[in-house]
Nucleic acid binder design. Structure first.
Lengths: 300, 300
DNA sequence: CCGCCCCTATCGGAGAAGCCGATGGCAGGA
DNA sequence: TCCTGCCATCGGCTTCTCCGATAGGGGCGG
């Protein structure tokens, strides 16, 4: 068993063909073909179904897939550890958390706030669905998301709590209405992100609480666009408080004093519980994050 | 990176020398020397300090050690999974649990009592200290011990509860004393296992509860010896009830009706929380064990 | 229906690596 | 001092690895 063979197998599965994999890896096509033959001889079973238009993993190949990834992961971690470098933590987070909350945590972590444990950290920003996938497949060590998503039967911790706020630019008509009623809100035009986005889900859930069918004026692609449009007075938005903390402090946005129940939020950490040199710093990081709960942070 | 190299490295560390490792692996000494040179070239750093009387891992080698074991573990699990065999669960338990309790659980597990999840199971019997070591080093997937031992920050579940009982042969003088008082017990000569054994710890704890300094008449090497000696009327013993269940039922031993508090016991499961094909059957097995709590079992 | 194209397997050869037995250096103990 | 046990190195043989070239096979358009 050789990491080259596993790398070749992975490349073939990812590119969908032996020739493409050979290109990607810098081998001749025949070499990759040889490597796969060796691998299959070693395992005693074919792992790829070859066709004239490409290759598809067999059932055995699908079973091999996660192990191949794990082995290569382990190989990388091994080299890092043996050479004496700090362990690597692969963190994933939603855009908003990566923008507004993680930087402070990671800076503190880097300055030793989590104790003697240190690590190099990479941050991957993507959707919650993909975050969970990457965590399950072992390409991330920990992810930070909002609320509870689909089942994950690994370690989970609530990092902090926050809540949804209703914000507009100070110049927006709604900003000068006191006191604000639910009817005012229902007449307001909202801006939202696309369906599938976690912030859109938040909006929809709030909409159910605030009454039927809030008016949607505009659909934007990203949270950043949504925030900028709101600052420019183009409408109202329902967002997690921590994601507009900076704008609230600078006065670019105002928080409307709607007393009715706006959904509470939790920031959750999920991580792999693995034994290894990264385990201690990972736990230290998760514990540290809990000191950076947006609630605590907003008070400071 | 090649599993042969890792195997060679492990063998060298375990045997303490390259020549011995070559013997063990069936290679020539020069071949193992070559393999290590290749490994060190690949890793970019020496992993062994060679001396004229043997070999000792360098600091880098010590860091490599757990990874080498993990990689080889993973290699084995990979082959098992790819070839479509059932996953392998490596269970560890104390002698008494392996004798009196695990067999029933594993038989039920094998008969599908834990649902559709099945697995091949190996059972390793050793001391609690070693069980915990092997669990931490990834050579066991789950261990069953009595009470809580040293810290283990992985998943833990209480599998069942039991209690310590005072037993003698029916012919023993104490068996005919009714009612039994603490003074009677303190005058009795006990048989115990060696210091360090979990059953000796139980005895010592009970001794603290029952009063100062119970009389120790004989120290035996194993739980089985202790039990046989007790059956033969050589003295009294304090033991977990489940470990003498069979003798109590057959009448070879009698349980003395001491009303005072004899320490309650818990059987605990600790396991590795890893993602993989063995995870589901492992959880199923742990859940199944909880249905085989000795308390429930004794009632049946 | 035929040729074309893209895919993969196979072949032969050159180079590298693996393995072995033999040899030599080194250190500790009799 | 010699002897013994350890490891590294060397030369050889074998095996593996990789490559370029070639061959086979199935879709697809003409």
């Amino acid at each position: 068993m050789d990491t080259r063979q596993l790398r070749a197998f992975l490349a073939v599965v990812e590119t969908g063909g032996i020739s493409a994999a050979a290109d990607q890896l810098g081998y001749a096509q025949s070499s990759v073909s040889d490597q796969l033959r060796t691998l299959e001889r070693d395992l005693g079973t074919p792992v790829l179904n070859r066709t004239s238009i490409g290759t598809v993993p067999t059932e055995a190949g699908q079973r091999l897939l996660p192990y191949a990834r794990r082995m290569l992961d382990l190989d990388g971690e091994l080299r890092r550890t043996v050479s004496g470098r700090r362990p690597l933590l692969r963190i994933g987070a939603l855009q908003s958390l990566a923008d507004e909350w993680l930087p402070e945590v990671l800076t503190a972590f880097d300055h030793g706030a989590a104790g003697p444990e240190t690590a190099d950290v990479t941050v991957t920003v993507t959707s919650r669905t993909r975050l969970m996938e990457e965590l399950l497949e072992g390409r991330l060590d920990a992810v930070f998301t909002l609320d509870s998503g689909p089942a994950y039967d690994g370690p989970t911790a609530v990092v902090g709590t926050d809540h949804v706020v209703l914000v507009t630019a100070p110049s927006h008509p709604l900003a000068s209405v006191h006191p604000l009623t639910l009817d005012d809100v229902r007449r307001t035009e909202f801006m939202v992100t696309e369906i599938g986005c976690i912030y859109r889900q938040l909006f929809d859930e709030c909409g159910r609480d605030l009454g039927p069918s809030l008016k949607i004026a505009m659909i934007t692609g990203s949270l950043n666009a949504l925030r900028r449009l709101t600052v420019n007075g183009r409408g109202a938005a329902l967002l997690p408080r921590f994601s507009v903390q900076a704008e609230l402090e600078s006065g670019d946005l105002v928080m409307l004093d709607l007393k009715e129940g706006l959904a509470p939020l939790t920031i959750e950490a999920r991580w792999r519980d693995e034994i290894g040199p990264g385990a201690a710093p990972l736990r230290a990081l998760v514990e540290l994050t809990q000191k950076f709960s947006p609630a605590a942070w907003a008070m400071a």
